[in-house]
Simulated scan of single mutants.
Amino acid sequence: MFSNGISCNLPFSCMSVTRDSGSEELLPSRMAREPILLNVYDMYKINDLTSNIGLGVFHSGVEIYGTEYAYGGHQYPFTGIFEIIPRDERELGDQFRFRQSIQIGYTDFTEDDVKRIINELGKEFRGDRYHLMNNNCNHFSGAFTKILCGQDIPSWVNRLAYFSSWVPFLEKCLPKEWLMPMALQHSISNHCPDSTCSEASTPPY
């Protein structure tokens, strides 16, 4: 059971221990060494003006084992988590611009462990549960990194969510297409290629 209440059945390879022949002390079998990167994107040119005063609109994804995982909104009751080539803003759409990578920490979860974690997180971060202020891509990134290495993402990345409590109309001022990057639209078409997803390009937000 993870700290945020998400349960996941993972192998114990990352927590296995060895016993030194000359010592009764149990030691980890290996050190955490897979880097965890947070890739941050500007979501609008206005960030060039507002970021200097600490307010910006940002998208983020978590890069690990050569894949970047991110979250977006759609109207269906299945995962809104999708994968892209790390830092490839073209897969996200014209309104996204890569800003910077931040190293959050290291993990000893294996690549298979990470995929299982993503599957479990997808039950919470469903497309139809996306909310720009309360359950957005940055909330997902923070939940993911805390599971991987116990570290949250920098608070400034999701500062817009905190400002929304002071400026309640702000959410209505942002374009709806920001909720669903191009890569997520492609992911949805692969998830349900029949007509049930024919309207995936127009999420009801």
Rank of each mutant, 00 (worst) to 15 (best):
M1T: 13
M1R: 08
F2C: 10
N4L: 14
I6D: 13
C8M: 14
N9C: 06
P11N: 15
F12C: 07
F12N: 13
S13M: 04
C14E: 14
M15F: 04
S16V: 11
V17D: 06
R19I: 15
R19Y: 15
R19F: 13
S21L: 12
S21F: 13
S23I: 11
E24G: 00
P28F: 14
S29L: 15
A32E: 15
I36M: 14
N39H: 14
Y44F: 09
K45A: 10
I46K: 13
I46D: 11
L49G: 04
N52P: 02
N52A: 12
I53L: 12
I53D: 02
H59L: 10
S60L: 14
E63L: 01
E63G: 00
Y65F: 15
E68T: 06
A70Y: 05
G73P: 09
Q75T: 09
Q75A: 12
P77A: 11
F78Y: 15
T79H: 08
I81M: 15
E83V: 04
I84R: 08
P86D: 03
R87V: 08
D88I: 04
E89F: 01
D94K: 12
D94N: 10
Q95C: 09
F96C: 08
R99F: 13
Q103L: 11
I104F: 06
I104Y: 05
Y106C: 09
F109Q: 00
T110Q: 03
T110E: 11
E111R: 05
E111C: 05
D112Y: 00
D113C: 07
V114S: 01
K115L: 09
R116P: 02
R116E: 12
L121I: 00
F125V: 06
R126A: 15
D128I: 02
Y130R: 09
H131W: 04
L132P: 00
M133T: 12
N134Y: 08
N134C: 04
N134W: 09
N138V: 07
H139D: 13
S141R: 03
S141F: 08
A143F: 02
F144L: 15
T145M: 07
T145I: 06
I147H: 05
L148M: 03
L148P: 00
Q151Y: 03
P154D: 08
W156R: 10
V157D: 10
L160K: 00
L160G: 01
A161R: 04
F169N: 06
K172C: 06
C173Q: 07
P175V: 06
P175G: 03
L179T: 13
L179P: 01
M180H: 03
L184E: 02
Q185Y: 06
H186L: 04
S187P: 01
I188E: 01
S189G: 02
S189N: 07
N190L: 14
H191F: 11
P193R: 04
S195G: 01
T196G: 01
S198I: 01
A200N: 11
Y205N: 03
